[in-house]
Nucleic acid binder design. Structure first.
Length: 586
RNA sequence: GCGCUCGUAGCUCAGUUGGAUAGAGCGUUGGUUUCCGAAGCCAAAGGCCACAGGUUCGAUUCCUGUCGAGCGCGCCA
């Protein structure tokens, strides 16, 4: 990554300033474009700058000649051991040992605040994630959104943002009505009064059965016998499967249920919603995912926000009526077709309330909005942006990272996930099978917009193959060494580190030094997987170091223990951001 | 058909916003413990970065096209 952002760690900023001084007298107009790169290979030094290559053309000089001139103007610095001209014209910078080692003290003194940025503290960001319909248990797909979103929020905070974690509750739509009716029908069945088959497009899962029984225990459901015959009268065809329109049948069931049950329907609806939300909240909390706010879609209707937004669009001339429905001319703002906001039956569409929701987010004064959505919603983004543009909001402040689907693999075979009969694999089941740590890490071990093949056997394995243990083991190993040593780790803050000059040590310094920039990058790219890979690299580097040198009975003992302690701090910090524990003993 | 996301080692995937000799894990092969935890380490083998053009000092990265994969294209949410 080219390092050009303003939130540079002190050392990098010093190097930029140092190079800038030389560049000023050669090509002052290019000083602002000066970049520094971390190198991939040790023989290229600690940092490299390609600035000479970039300037060669406009200066009409060979790149190596430009580099030579810059080198000649560089003053000596305590940070620098030496500088080399290499390859086509790269300027390779080799830090002094003291400059390399200084990162250890930065970490020991900073503790969990190492890499914590305070540069963007004024930037408030709202991250909406999971937002699953409260109509059944969370499944493994939601789990990925939860793990991604939660890790992202933690990283954003580390990078200096003020983060608001929000779950959008779709408590207003038809799906909730279907769940309510499904529960009611199951309850009728439990009383032995149901005389027609349970509809195929109702919710089938076991959790509906248990809610039905709970409802029976808590409510009076009225004169159930008369209700069943009234239902059959209102919706003829309930007894004949495979006839007519299933969806129309369901609409009829919903309408009849509301009429027949009256207030009881509202109670049952509220009960079912509360049950599902409570289950969802517990599930997520056990997964280490906690929200600041559960935002109700229904509240947007109750407050009149939805009607108000449609009115605003109308006043601005963006709506028209066609075939009884009210349409938003989204094609005028980049969408591929126009969209309905109010149906011919007078009901607002989900789209309408979603516009109101996004306007609500903007009105709450956030500098930035992030929606974590399932990849199947990607076609939905243009219409939401179209509406926001039409209403005068700046969609550049809205990001919508997409989370792709998850396939579970067991013994090399793809595990089937059928939502039809409620036989999908739930997040709760996954957690019970592989544990929270493995689940959290595996979910972010892949770029979020790529399909994820989740290997259940590997995640469950208590073996070397499992990347969770690989990282955690590094942390536990350090704990054990420090325990063996037995001293107070505070004493390590004043240790002389000058003996740390082994290649393994230099490599570790560079990795540790990269952590703050990595956090910034992961935040900027909304990419927690970068942190997961970083931690694996750091663990690998440590394991190699562990096998290469002694830590206790040697002249460098205290210095090396200080380095170990700093590695442990970063490992723990990174694992914590990803929602994974950092055990001292395994 | 149109749109979005992709195509990198046998498999699963990274790749520092265009940099030097493209990396890791698994799998394969061969080593490694009188010593701080072997859930570890070291080494070897494995690549036309899907293909063809273009942009420039320089392309896995940016642009165009072809082939192939996944997803989306409701008055559902």
């Amino acid at each position: 990554m080219s390092i050009t952002v303003s939130t540079l760690p002190a050392l990098e900023q010093n190097l930029i300033d140092w190079l800038s001084g030389a560049l000023t007298s050669i090509a002052p107009e290019y000083v602002s474009r000066l970049t520094l790169e971390r190198t991939r290979q040790a023989n290229h030094g600690d940092y490299a700058s390609p600035i000479a290559l970039q300037l060669a053309k406009s200066l009409r000089l060979p790149p190596r000649e430009v580099a030579q001139r810059i080198l000649a103007l560089l003053p000596p610095s305590v940070l620098i051991d030496h500088v080399e001209l290499a390859g086509a014209g790269f300027i390779n910078i080799f830090l002094s040992s003291a400059a390399r080692q200084s990162v250890v003290m930065e970490i020991l003194n900073g503790g969990s605040l190492y890499a914590q940025s305070d540069q963007e503290n004024d930037r408030r960001v709202l991250v909406e994630f999971v937002s699953s319909n409260p109509t059944g248990p969370l499944h493994v797909g939601h789990g990925r959104g939860a793990a991604y979103g939660a890790s992202l929020c933690n990283i954003l905070e580390k990078a200096g943002y003020q983060v608001h974690r929000e779950y959008y509750v779709n408590d207003a739509g038809r799906q909730m009505d279907i769940l309510t009716v499904s529960t009611w029908l199951r309850a009728l069945n439990n009383t032995g009064k149901l005389s027609f088959p349970f509809p195929a497009n109702g919710y089938q899962g076991d959790y509906v059965l248990s809610m039905a029984q709970d409802a029976l225990d808590r409510f009076s459901l009225g004169d159930t016998e008369n209700m069943v015959s009234a239902l059959l009268h209102a919706c003829p065809g309930l007894n004949n499967q495979d006839t007519g329109d299933e969806e129309a049948q369901m609409d009829c069931l919903i309408a009849s249920a509301k009429t027949l049950l009256g207030d009881i329907y509202q109670n049952l609806h509220a009960f079912v919603l509360a049950q599902q939300l409570s289950d969802c909240r517990d599930d997520l909390q056990e997964f280490g995912v906690v929200f600041d706010e559960w935002f109700s879609e229904q509240s947007l209707f109750d407050s009149g926000s939805v009607a108000k937004i449609v009115e605003r669009l109308s006043e601005a001339g963006h709506l028209y009526r066609d075939q009884g429905a009210l349409w938003f001319r989204s094609t005028a703002f980049g969408d591929e077709k126009d969209r309905v906001v109010q149906r011919d039956n007078g009901l607002y569409t989900y789209f309408a309330s979603d516009i109101a929701y996004h306007v609500n987010k903007f009105e709450r004064g956030f500098d930035r909005l992030i929606n974590v959505w399932g990849a199947d919603h990607h076609g939905y983004i243009p219409r939401v942006e179209a509406a926001l543009i039409a209403l005068g909001y700046d969609v550049a402040h809205l990001s919508v990272p997409l989370v792709q689907f998850v396939s579970l693999f067991r013994q090399g075979e793809k595990a089937q996930m059928s939502t039809r009969k409620g036989q999908f694999v739930t997040l709760r089941h996954l957690r019970e099978e592989v544990g929270r740590d493995a689940a959290r890490l595996f979910y972010v071990l892949r770029k979020s917009d790529q399909h994820l093949d989740f290997d259940l056997d590997l995640a469950r394995a208590q073996s070397q193959d499992n990347p969770v243990y690989y990282i955690q083991y590094a942390h536990a190993r350090i704990s054990r060494v420090l325990e063996r040593w037995g001293g107070n780790t505070d004493l390590l803050h004043s240790v002389d580190l000058s003996a740390l000059i082994q290649p393994e040590e230099v490599e570790l310094f560079q990795i540790l030094r990269a952590y703050p920039v990595l956090i910034q990058q992961a935040a900027q790219e909304l990419a927690p997987h970068l942190l997961a890979f970083y931690l694996r690299d750091l663990a690998a580097s440590f394991h190699g170091y562990y096998n290469a040198v002694p830590f206790l009975d040697c002249p460098e003992a205290l210095a090396r223990l200080a380095l170990l302690k700093s590695i442990q701090i970063v490992l723990r910090d990174g694992l914590t951001l990803l929602g994974v524990s950092a055990p001292d003993v395994m």
